[in-house]
């Protein structure tokens, strides 16, 4: 059932795309690879678990709750860790190491609070399933596609058609000049982190609902693969993240068919590796993007 495999791969790809977008946003504006994004995504998933299983809130309040928290966490990361380093003029590597440290902190805090085992997550958006030409489509899969489309559409709108989006694009080109023309750089950067956090929360909730499992290491693997997706598409470019995510999802599904399940996990890394070797700026990236980053 190759068509089913391809469809499942597409759904997987949407999930990676949702996460990849968060990386792209932060990289676009700060030239920083936000290695803590995976941890924030895990935090979002756990907040979803908190809301759904412990506080018994409905789906929408849970998602809003998760978004609130991840947005707040991301802003904290920016304010407490990254901003002082930026103002010190620290090298990008310093910031990269700091965010990696932050991801360890977040992940392990989650482990200490929720335990280290895999916890069950309740089924969400369970309205049944239907068949389209031999391919089984479940309602949650439909929701994932819907959410991906809506979210990315919204992000595209914000970046292209609002003043805030314009400010974001200015800052990604030249932060000093943006400051000089009166853009509140600090606020826009915080805003970007909030949006990135919101994406992480949504992704966390959808994935937890899809696989019905939450565990504190879910951010490391998913984060790295989504990162591969972002790089594949051209980091900093939103549409690139979507394409990259979907491509990686498809490749993973097909890798199981062709090579066997034990190799599929490595697909994303092999792709990442090849992209970085051949064309680091990715499919849609311009070559001037990867200067001394």
């Amino acid at each position: 059932m190759l068509s089913q495999q391809i469809f499942n791969g597409l759904i997987l790809g949407c999930i990676y795309a949702l996460l990849a977008v968060g990386y792209s946003l932060v990289f676009g504006i700060l030239r920083l690879l936000n290695m803590s994004h995976g941890a924030v995504y895990t935090a979002g998933a756990f907040m979803g678990l908190l809301g759904a299983s412990y506080l018994h809130m409905g789906a929408v309040p849970t998602i809003l709750f998760a978004m609130l928290l991840t947005g707040a966490v991301n802003v904290c990361i920016n304010r407490a860790v990254l901003q002082p380093l930026r103002e010190q003029g620290a090298a990008n590597i310093t910031m990269l190491i700091s965010v990696t440290g932050v991801s360890y902190i977040i992940q392990n805090t989650l482990m200490l609070v929720f335990g280290s085992q895999k916890l069950p997550f309740p089924k969400v958006f369970d309205f049944g399933s239907f068949r389209v030409g031999g391919v089984l489509v479940t309602s949650i899969q439909v929701m994932i596609v819907l959410v991906t489309v809506v979210l990315l559409g919204a992000l595209g709108l914000i970046t292209k058609h609002t003043r805030t989006g314009l400010a974001m694009r200015c800052i990604s080109q030249n932060p000093k000049a943006s400051n000089m023309v009166g853009i509140d750089v600090r606020w826009i950067i915080s805003f970007t982190f909030i949006v990135s956090g919101i994406c992480a929360a949504i992704a966390g909730y959808m994935v937890s609902g899809y696989y019905q499992l939450v565990y504190f290491t879910m951010g490391t693997t998913a984060g790295l693969k989504a990162f591969a997706a972002a790089v594949l598409g051209g980091i900093g470019i939103l549409s690139g993240s979507v394409v990259g995510g979907i491509l990686i999802g498809l490749c993973e599904a097909l890798a199981t068919v062709v090579f066997g399940g034990e190799y599929s996990e490595a697909t994303a890394y092999v792709i990442l590796f090849l992209v970085l070797l051949i064309k680091p700026s990715g499919l849609f990236g311009k070559d001037d993007v990867d200067e001394k980053v």
């Binding site: 590597i93 890394y269 590796f273 970085l276 070797l277 001394k292």
Partner: peptide, 27 residues
């Protein structure tokens, strides 16, 4: 592998390299 890269890209390549080595060792 990292000769043409610098900064964060190089770091990520080392990450990917490590994952590939692990995959080779496993399979």
């Amino acid at each position: 592998c990292t000769i043409k890269l610098s900064g964060s890209y190089m770091t990520v390549t080392t990450l990917a390299f490590a994952q590939v080595v692990t995959m080779v060792a496993k399979n």
